[in-house]
Simulated scan of single mutants.
Amino acid sequence: MYTPPAFRDDDKDSLIATIRAARLANLVTATADGPLATPLPLFLDETEGEHGVIHGHLAKANPQWRVPAIGDGLAIFMGPDAYVTPAWYATKQETGKVVPTWNYAAVHAYGPVEFFEDADRLLEVVTRLTNLHEGARAAPWAVSDAPPDFIQSQLRGIVGLRMPVVRLEGKRKMSQNRNAADRAGVASGLAASERPSDREVAALIS
């Protein structure tokens, strides 16, 4: 990922927070036939290995797991993002030398990809993913709410993913390259937006 020094995010807590907040990631593998990518809900287990291990699953009909990967896999986690109009810059009034841009946060996780079909491991991954996303609901649904034979039939249609993280890259582009007046203008403009993601970005600009 191209990351100018001003936008590099090396803070592990910040990187983990971006990963945890991303409800959907993209798994990318390089193959002899070209890159393959799949949008997937993934989770990071920080208790495993130096940088943690990413877990998830994909459909067994998806060819990505059958095609041998060349080198490490890449999981892309996107944080909040927002379009930034030059109209918000104080510099626009002073010189007019401004252009549009985009603010965003992203984390790239790299590691060797392992796919598996073991039913017990698959059930654990599915259960952990379900608990993660159902936990905040007033009446959370649990995997155990469904008939066991139905769950087993569903597990036969998926393949598990395990990717030990060997490297993390983080980028947080939040107008750090602009002067204080420009940053204040961007934060104010985004805070007034009707888009929730715009308001999230506004809160990250300092």
Rank of each mutant, 00 (worst) to 15 (best):
A136R: 14
A187H: 04
D118N: 14
V159S: 10
A109F: 03
N179R: 12
V126G: 11
N179A: 03
G111V: 07
S144V: 01
A119I: 09
S188K: 15
I158T: 15
L122A: 04
T130R: 08
G170I: 07
L122G: 10
V159P: 10
N177C: 00
S144I: 00
S153P: 08
P147G: 05
S153W: 05
A136H: 13
N177I: 00
R156K: 15
N131A: 15
G160I: 03
R178G: 03
I151Y: 04
R167L: 08
D145H: 12
L132S: 13
G135H: 12
A138W: 03
F150A: 12
I151K: 09
E114Q: 14
W141N: 12
E134Q: 15
V125R: 13
G160V: 06
A187G: 06
H133V: 09
M174I: 13
E117F: 03
E117N: 08
A109V: 01
R121W: 02
H108V: 04
D120C: 00
A184Y: 07
S188V: 00
S188P: 01
G189A: 09
A139L: 00
D145T: 13
G135Q: 10
Q154W: 01
S175V: 02
R156F: 03
K171W: 09
V125A: 08
K173Q: 13
P147L: 00
P148G: 07
Q176N: 14
N179W: 02
A181P: 12
I151M: 07
V126D: 06
L129C: 12
V113Q: 04
A191V: 02
H133G: 06
P112A: 13
L129Q: 15
L161C: 09
R121C: 02
F115M: 13
A136F: 04
E169S: 11
N177E: 10
A138C: 02
